Structures are given as structure tokens and as C-alpha cells.
Amino acid sequence: MNGCVLVSIEIDAATVRRGDQLTIDGQAFTIRDMTALARGAKRLEFTTGDTLTLRPGTVLWAARQVSPRYGRRA
């Protein structure tokens, strides 16, 4: 265990990261790589080899591993 926890976050083409996990049609997909496309879109490549084009106006929910030790300070 690496000391991280999974949190649900809202993502779009500007905020998506490698390692984010998306659930599509009940199946979990982890983002392995991304390619920037025209007009702010990104092509996401999953560990399964599948791809998805995320357009700038598309908002999705993802699970992201974060360390609770580096959260916001009060």
C-alpha cells in the first residue's frame, strides 16, 4: 500500500491526469497516456489499449489517488 486514498473528482480535458480511473458502462479504465488534440481536446489511452477522446466541454467523474498527507492546510 502506498499510503494514498481514492477520491472522486470532477475532470475535464484541462484537468485529467495519467492514473485517473474512469468508470464507463460499469467497467473501470485507468488512463495510461494522453495526447493533446486540436482545440483543447485530449485522446486518452487506457491500460486496456482502448481510447477515448475527451473534448473541452465534456465533464466526467474520475477516481484519483491522492496522499492525505499533502491535502489542504487549514
Rank of each mutant, 00 (worst) to 15 (best):
R43G: 02
A28I: 06
V7S: 01
G19W: 03
T53S: 14
A13S: 15
G57R: 12
R73H: 10
G19P: 11
A63E: 14
R18Y: 06
L44M: 00
E10A: 09
G71F: 03
G57H: 13
D50R: 11
V5S: 09
T23P: 06
A63N: 14
T15V: 10
G3C: 00
D25C: 01
V16R: 02
I31H: 02
Q65F: 01
R32C: 06
D20R: 02
S8M: 04
Q27C: 15
D50V: 00
R73E: 02
T48A: 08
G19C: 07
Q27F: 13
T58G: 00
L6G: 03
C4S: 13
T15L: 04
A28T: 02
N2E: 12
R39A: 15
T58C: 04
A13K: 04
R73Q: 08
G49E: 07
R69S: 14
Q27D: 14
R64V: 01
L60P: 02
Q21K: 14
E45Y: 06
V5T: 15
D25H: 05
R64W: 01
L6I: 09
E10W: 08
G19Q: 13
D12R: 03
A13D: 04
M1W: 07
G49C: 05
N2R: 10
G49H: 10
T15N: 02
R39K: 14
A28E: 11
R72S: 15
S67N: 06
F29N: 11
A41P: 11
Q27Y: 13
G3R: 05
V16C: 11
A74P: 14
T48L: 06
D33V: 01
T51A: 07
I24H: 09
D20K: 02
A41S: 15
T47H: 15
L22P: 11
I9Q: 06
I9P: 00
D20L: 01
I9C: 02
V7G: 00
G26L: 07
L44T: 02
L6P: 05
T58Y: 00
V7P: 00
G3K: 12
L37N: 14
L54P: 08
W61Q: 07
A74T: 12
I24M: 15
Q21S: 11
D12L: 07
D12Y: 01
A74W: 08
V16L: 05
D25Y: 06
P68G: 02
G26Q: 07
I31K: 01
C4N: 12
P68H: 00
S67W: 04
Q21E: 15
G26S: 07
T15Y: 02
T35Y: 05
L6Y: 14
S8L: 09
Q27E: 15
N2C: 09
E45A: 10
A62W: 01
G3M: 03
R64K: 08
L44S: 01
E45R: 14
A74G: 12
L60H: 15
G40I: 09
L6K: 13
T35G: 00
G26E: 04
G49S: 12
E45K: 10
A28C: 06
Q21H: 13
T35K: 12
L6E: 12
E10H: 06
A38P: 03
T58I: 08
T51V: 13
D12I: 00
